[in-house]
């Protein structure tokens, strides 16, 4: 019995140790990636990188101004499309979505969320690019919006559900109509959580590359026209990373550092948003 007891203790310790090791192992890639990004990327980050255009092969320097603006524009288009659908759809799910329609929407959103982004890319290619006859920033924005939509939708629903029922009743008892209660009281109460979800969705689509490959295509030149191909930061990183030229590879690292900076800032912002005490829901 004593022997068995010692065995159990040893197994207990080693499994605890294994869980700790797993956590350390999981964090190693994060440390390595951030180290490499900083070391390789920091050297060519300067004002030029944000204000200049890409240089042709063989000429050092230059920047990614067009790609940074392109990413901002396309993320903007995506937000403009996805936001009303996500917010109003989320409102529908939390307030009226008990029936079959609600279940169908929830199911569709979850499935849409799981569709590989490359598939969304070829869908938008067939849906927008082929009818228009050419690649365009608009198509890129639409592709990103399809990725963004289900994320905002489901998050908005969850956040609205956290708003206590008593609050709705209080507003209704004051004689405020239901629709006004929803828009003025419920939405406003849940705004912090909703904005957090939007920030996380932005962080996600800012780095998406696959859906832009056959929609926005990328562009080495300055263009603000929404009906023309447009550069995007992740696309530019991809093109440069697989190129055989040293200068371009260097630019890819710097671009990656800028991109990760954007993503980390958005994530930190969203984290800071939830820091503030939340409504308790459990008993």
């Amino acid at each position: 019995m004593q022997w068995r007891y010692h065995m159990r203790k040893i197994i207990d310790w080693s499994m605890s140790g294994a869980a700790m090791m797993a956590t350390l192992c999981g964090l190693i890639p994060l440390i390595l990636i951030s180290m490499h990004l900083l070391r390789r990327g920091i050297s060519s980050i300067n004002l030029d990188f944000f204000t200049h255009m890409p240089q042709p092969v063989g000429e050092p320097g230059g920047g990614m101004a067009n790609a940074i603006i392109g990413t901002c524009l396309m993320v903007g288009i995506a937000t403009a499309i996805a936001l009303p659908i996500g917010l109003l759809g989320g409102l529908y799910l939390s307030e009226f979505g008990e029936r079959r329609t609600g279940a169908a929407v929830r199911f569709a959103a979850d499935m849409l969320n799981g569709i590989p982004s490359i598939v969304i890319g070829i869908f938008v290619y067939g849906f927008v690019v082929v009818p228009l006859g050419h690649f365009s920033a608009m198509a890129g924005g639409i592709a990103l919006s399809i990725i963004m939509m289900p994320m905002i939708l489901r998050n908005t629903e969850e956040m609205l559900r956290l708003v206590p029922h008593a609050l709705r009743e209080a507003a209704l008892a004051l004689g405020i109509p239901y629709w006004k209660t929803l828009l003025r009281v419920v939405l406003v109460t849940a705004r912090r959580g909703i904005v957090t979800g939007i920030l996380l969705a932005l962080a996600r689509i800012a780095g998406e590359t696959a859906p832009l490959l056959f929609t926005a295509l990328g562009n080495q030149f300055w263009s603000l026209r929404l009906d023309q191909p447009m550069a995007a930061l992740p696309l530019q990183i991809f093109t440069y990373a697989i190129s055989p030229f040293e200068e371009w590879q260097q630019q890819a690292w710097s671009g990656a550092l800028v991109l990760i900076g954007i993503v980390v800032i958005l994530s930190l912002l969203s984290r800071w948003m939830v820091r503030v005490p939340q409504v308790k829901t459990d008993g």
Partner: peptide
């Protein structure tokens, strides 16, 4: 106004369903 709100939000929510079906159909056709 309540019913209008319901129908407006419902039609926005349905876009997600339409999109999902649209993706499937588009890929099948192409």
């Amino acid at each position: 106004a309540d019913r209008i709100l319901k129908w407006v939000t419902a039609s926005f929510a349905m876009i997600v369903v339409v999109l999902l079906c649209g993706i499937g159909i588009m890929l099948l056709v192409k």
